[in-house]
Simulated assay, not measured.
Amino acid sequence: MMVGVSEDQPPEEPTVAAALPEEHLPPKRLPIFLAVAVVLLGLDLLTKSIIVAQLTPGHPVRVIGDVVRLTLVRNAGAAFSMATGMTWLLTLIATSVVVGVIRIARRLRSVWWAVGLGMVLGGALGNLVDRFFRAPGPMLGHVVDFISVGWWPVFNVADSSVVCGAILLVALTVFGFEPDGTRTGRAVGEPKTGEESAA
């Protein structure tokens, strides 16, 4: 007689967060995420407004010799002025990024993940405002860039925020810190160090 083979798959291992009762989980970090995003968005909009009012294209202002300058540039493309003819597509991509980040952030329990995603959201929104509300028109607006450092392409506060936030998120992923406040490979109930508690 042949022994039947069950087609049932073994149950999936629960995640660390799923194995813990709600009262033992770190609090959700949505307020931190929103605060970081709002502060950086406000800083980006403020600096752009000042630069547009005070500078004329082609007339840079030296801050540190020829190394650091303020120069008004209107960028129709992505970072480093790439894809200048695809402004409408870049606007759609940025909008999708904003929606995705907000959906992820609702479940955040890690402080540093909240900071990193808040930086990405604040920067993405800063440049998205330019896309929608600056000339030549909605979804085709040119982003205001004004920080020139050495040979590096001209950028703005929003660009810096997105890049720094992305670097932070990559570092957290590499070192095993999860958005839910746990760390990859750590057993359930195992005490955390001070650094891990903050994450």
Rank of each mutant, 00 (worst) to 15 (best):
M82W: 11
G77H: 03
V38C: 08
L41I: 09
V98G: 04
T87R: 07
V68K: 13
T71A: 13
R103E: 07
G85N: 14
V73S: 01
T56Y: 01
P60W: 03
K48E: 04
I50G: 02
V97Q: 04
T87L: 04
T84Y: 08
R103P: 01
V68T: 06
I50A: 13
V38A: 15
V52A: 11
L41V: 06
S96E: 10
L89R: 04
A76H: 09
L45T: 12
G85R: 05
V52T: 11
T91I: 13
S81R: 10
A94W: 01
M86I: 05
I64A: 14
K48Y: 05
T84P: 01
T87Q: 04
N75Q: 12
V39P: 05
P57L: 08
V63Y: 00
I50N: 01
I51G: 02
A78G: 14
R62G: 14
D44I: 03
K48I: 09
R103C: 14
V98L: 10
A94H: 03
D44W: 04
V101G: 09
G100C: 11
A37C: 12
T71H: 07
V98T: 13
V98W: 03
A76Q: 14
G42H: 03
Q54K: 07
L40Q: 03
S49M: 12
D66N: 15
